[in-house]
């Protein structure tokens, strides 16, 4: 039979232990308190929370903290775009500035129509795995492998592999840069979304090798560099590059390209 004193002593014991634990926790939470910057928390609320790292900070928390301390520029969040830039700017009292929309571009147009497979590949269906084996499965060792590692990492469903080469849907792309890191051949570049010329080939092979591997490969003939009045195009590593800052989007390079791989995008 239970006595009242048994119940009381049990209640007292558990109560006292609970009280001690509570007091210790209160003291600890005061001693080890983490100072929370309220402005950083408010800025964090406005950021999209994709934690993609496109801004150059370790996720949205890191960017919010840098913003609140005035160490970062406002328009770095490509995912949030102009709206986020404005909202954050009003919070921290800075000028939103002009937000430059960016997009990912796949610098390869090696679809199944213009290039071929070098071997029948039966391994893991991933570009990363395939690239470890003789730089991919295609004739061109620099081009799109086409297993869609980039499409798999895209949070916004903006990339699809069509006919063996990846294509970015620019309406959906938020320029977070996840695909840039995922492409083992480094074909994807984050570029300004304003209209400019873009070379859809990244082959570093000599012209004759490129010609054999792919009908849509840059052979480094330099016709575009001569045609460009703004001096925006240079040929490096056997293929042409466009300087976006200089490009006036006149389209002359696209007209003269014998391989038809400079596209106005």
């Amino acid at each position: 039979m239970f006595l009242l004193s048994d119940i009381l002593s049990a209640v007292t014991l558990v109560g006292v232990i609970g009280l001690i634990v509570g007091v210790v926790l209160v003291i600890a939470s005061l001693v080890f308190a983490v100072p929370v910057d309220e402005r950083a928390a408010a800025v964090r609320e406005q950021l999209p929370g994709a934690n993609c790292g496109a801004c150059g900070f370790s996720g949205c928390d890191g960017y919010a903290e840098a913003l609140s301390k005035g160490k970062a520029k406002v328009g770095l969040c490509t995912v949030g775009g102009e709206e986020t830039a404005k909202a954050v700017a009003s919070l921290i009292g800075a000028d939103a500035g002009s937000f430059e929309k960016k997009t990912a571009v796949v610098h390869c147009s090696g679809t199944c129509d213009v290039t071929r497979k070098a071997a029948a590949y039966q391994g893991e269906k991933s570009c990363k795995a395939a690239s470890m084996l003789y730089s991919g499965v295609g004739k061109c060792t620099f081009g799109c492998i086409g297993f869609g590692d980039c499409a798999a990492v895209c949070e916004y469903g903006a990339i699809s592999v069509v006919n063996g080469a990846a294509i970015v849907d620019r309406d959906k792309c938020r320029a977070c840069g996840a695909c840039v890191a995922a492409c083992p051949h480094g074909l994807i570049v984050i570029e300004p979304a304003i209209r400019h010329a873009s070379v859809m080939c990244s082959s570093c092979d000599k012209g004759n090798v490129t010609t054999k591997a792919c009908k849509a490969g840059c052979v480094g003939c330099m016709r575009c560099t001569k045609a460009c009045e703004a001096g925006a195009i240079t040929v490096m590593n056997e293929h042409a590059h466009v300087d976006f800052d200089k490009c006036t989007a006149c389209g002359k390079c696209a007209e003269v390209c014998p391989r038809n791989i400079i596209k106005m995008i």
Binding site: V14, I17, G18, V21, G22, V24, L25, A28, S29, F32, A33, V34
Partner: peptide, 17 residues
């Protein structure tokens, strides 16, 4: 009770350091 308190304590310390 004791374990819950300890975990809370570790959480507080870990959050800081």
């Amino acid at each position: 009770l004791v374990i819950a308190g300890l975990v809370q304590l570790i959480e507080i310390v870990m959050k800081r350091y």
